[in-house]
Design a protein around this nucleic acid. Sequence first.
DNA 1: ACTTGAACCTGGCGGC
DNA 2: TGCCGCCAGGTTCAAG
Length: 468
Amino acid sequence: MPELPEVETIVGYLNDVLPGKRIKDIRIFREKNILSGAPSFQKELIGESFLNVTRRAKFLIFHLTDDKVVIAHLRMEGKYYFEEKDSSQKKHDILIYDFMDGSCLHYNDVRTFGTLELSNEKDYLKTPSLSSLGKEPFLISPEEFFSLLQKKGKHPIKQALLDQSLIVGIGNIYASEILFASQVNPRTPCKDIPFEKSDLILKETKRILFEAISQGGSTIRSYHPKEGISGKMQNELQVYGQANKPCPRCKTPIRRIFMNGRSTFYCPLCQKQPGHGIIIGVTGPIASGKSTVTSYLSEKGFVDLDSDRYAHESYEDKDVKKELKAHFPGAFSRGHLDRKKLLSIISKDEKKTLILNSIIHPYVYKRTEEEIKKHPEKNFVIDMPLLLASPFLDRCDFIIGVNAPLEVRKERLKERGVDIEKALKLNSSFPIKELKKAATIYLETTGSKEESRKILDSYAFLAGNKIL
DNA sequence: ACTTGAACCTGGCGGC
DNA sequence: TGCCGCCAGGTTCAAG
């Protein structure tokens, strides 16, 4: 749940209620969360009093009498709440400190990821939890921040902001917010960030974290420890959680991608990708109207990255050929690849299809990247039937999902003169639900090409002069 | 050595 | 209404 501002808010709350409270008993309901062991935690702390609470990174540091220290991390859902009287165990309580005066402090953690650890004033900064932490954002100099980023090399900036050994306290919400405010694309390699930009990122980090602290943090799914009180920063968030909503600066739909398994939000126009223009992905089942969309964008100057073409091309690549020979010797006659044979080999066998894809796809991806590198000033359209399952989904700034009713698609296939049933069968597993969900624009091409183009024109961020 | 993914957990929410 | 799959503010550790 918490990033630096939320932890700071909780520190403030605990310092209102905790100092001077003497521990009469500690009831532990889930021993696993106490890294230093439950028995000593109870034995050493009973009889001591809380002095105050400080913060280091996202850790809470409880200072007690006799130089005792408790290092605590809330992870995703941990909450502390103080009760004047009611000391009954609540659902998901990990432990309760009972005080001499009848009040108590609950540590409650729905997902049970949070931790507690007993230490002392002399050693606590040297414990493994705290020893490898980077600098506090309010204490790091612009020069130092820049040099740390340089050392991160080609790692994306978003990842660096989350790296607690580089700079502490930033989590997944504020990382997206900071990069939006700085107008830096989250994919940008750290080494490509000039000093002025890293300086700006640090300034925005401080501004946003400071503002969040003054708003009492963000309360999104959870609540602040103090009953009924929540932070207000969630109302100020510009991009986090705003997928497909208009950018507050330019109205372009906010894009959500996954980076290192975490949701990442950015504006494709305010935070242009480093090294090239906009990338629009077009996908949908066979005969859904993808090529209408692709040619529309080509005419507007987009470079067409045609994955089918690259796939065909791959069969001529000597490394690909070598791999194919190793896995599908039956598809070769007199040293030459027979693609019809290859298709018949894989068509009945899902496992073999996967193997073929694992050989072809990397080539297609490599070729696509090469093509993007060739035209640093251009915008791109990626036309890829399997885009949703490919790593290129998250290289795209927009996704145009195309679909059409079955009858319309059949009609189109008929016009193309292909085996309708066979073509549809090959495409039967296309995940339409997923397509709708992933698409920035979901286009049902029921009518003519002209109609589809008119619809595309109506999307201001496509047809306006912002991209095109 | 490096990077990605699973694991640790429960609950809320949107979609069928 | 209920059931299912997906997702969640963090961090670590095990595979590839």
